[in-house]
Nucleic acid binder design. Structure first.
Lengths: 206, 206
DNA sequence: CATCATACCAAACAACTGTTTGTTTTTCTA
DNA sequence: TAGAAAAACAAACAGTTGTTTGGTATGATG
């Protein structure tokens, strides 16, 4: 067996990469799927919903994706990619101090999760177990991102014996759960992020 | 119209309270529903799943509940009741200092959410929007509990200008999200709770 | 013992689900 | 401009969904 490259989104599309036509409605399909998955969840979205929003028939989706779950992987992967692309610049800014950099990373995370469109929301909204056949791939994609996020925490100058893993779980949980209570128009993602980080940094005990 | 009492769980059951027989399988139904809702989610659970686990036929469930969503409300309300019952004692312990009391409340919250059975998990797992017809009631139930939780935070001696609402959202989010990564057998709920509260109380910045 | 609400069964309903199969139209390329 | 590949249609499949309807044992009650 020849060594294979890391699997990408297009591995799940059925026809090989060669020769794509310009009028393909694949982007429409992905956008529609992302919208429905983000708003209604994976299980509550039907292939007919997606096909209808993309202006085609349900069966036609199977030209691009072997199954509904394969379509989810594609959307999910794109979501991770977008959040990563939003967060990486904030993480790379080496000149700012670690705490404000963490705040910026959190702000970017929140933005990609709450405002930057549907793809990012899917990553938080959809539970891997909801698509058993591809659950492992989804989890791997999520872990891949969380490792990036963890870098912002590892860079913090913390007192010795601080549980950095717990700190990551706590912060990431607080951020992700915001999808439950966040309402657009109120506090912006960056405001929320700064507020959360400040609660961690400043001493609340006497 | 005569003034009505606040709606309770049994309002959703079809027959009036008068004359209940002792061999009713209603508890079995609720337990089975809670188990499936907690493990697979609301939308991924069928009435046949629940009926089968309770040893009856799907149609028979409609003797107790007018719809699948009404059944969810019953389970959800019971879940809120159980978590509340677990948390209230920890909240009422007036002798211990506010910070350890908060830790105890969080530990109770986590226990009711991760270990104390399925009812509690349903409250966190199921999103109100998944059952549109009863979404408002579910949200109201959840808010009712969160108000209790908030008392533990209001009692904290915090520096002036501390955003207590943000603190509540952050802590509750971190706790609730633990359903995603928690694995039984590792750190216990009370250990996790103490760890999270300590991260908030102790100064992490220099 | 007669009665009656309780608690369920049995069977079906229409609507919807993901998916397949064969065919047709459209676009790019040689 | 002929041919091939790409992109989609059209129609159906088998299974599952929540729910309804009419009937029937069963236990409590007078």
């Amino acid at each position: 067996m020849p060594p294979e490259a890391a699997p990408t989104v297009s591995d799940l599309a059925r026809p090989p990469r060669t020769g794509t036509r310009s009028d393909s409605r694949l982007p429409l399909v992905l956008d529609a799927a992302a919208r429905f998955f983000a708003e209604k969840g994976f299980g509550y979205t039907s292939m007919r919903d997606i096909a209808g929003a993309a202006g085609m028939l349900p069966g036609s989706l199977y030209y691009y994706f072997a199954s509904k779950e394969a379509l989810l992987v594609a959307v999910y992967a794109e979501g991770v990619r977008r959040i990563t692309d939003t967060v990486l610049p904030a993480l790379g800014a080496a000149e700012v101090d670690p705490w404000t950099r963490l705040a910026n990373v959190c702000a970017a995370h929140l933005a990609g999760l709450l405002e930057d469109g549907d793809y990012g929301q899917v990553v938080i909204r959809v539970r891997p177990e909801d698509a058993p056949a591809v659950a492992a791939r989804l989890t791997a994609l999520r872990d891949e991102y969380e490792a990036i996020f963890a870098q912002a925490i590892d860079a913090l100058p913390l007192p010795p014996r601080t549980d950095r893993r717990a700190l990551k779980l706590m912060l990431l949980g607080a951020l992700n759960w915001s999808q439950t209570w966040y309402r657009p128009g109120k506090d912006s993602p960056s405001v929320l992020a700064r507020r959360f980080v400040r609660l961690l940094r400043d001493p609340l005990g006497q």
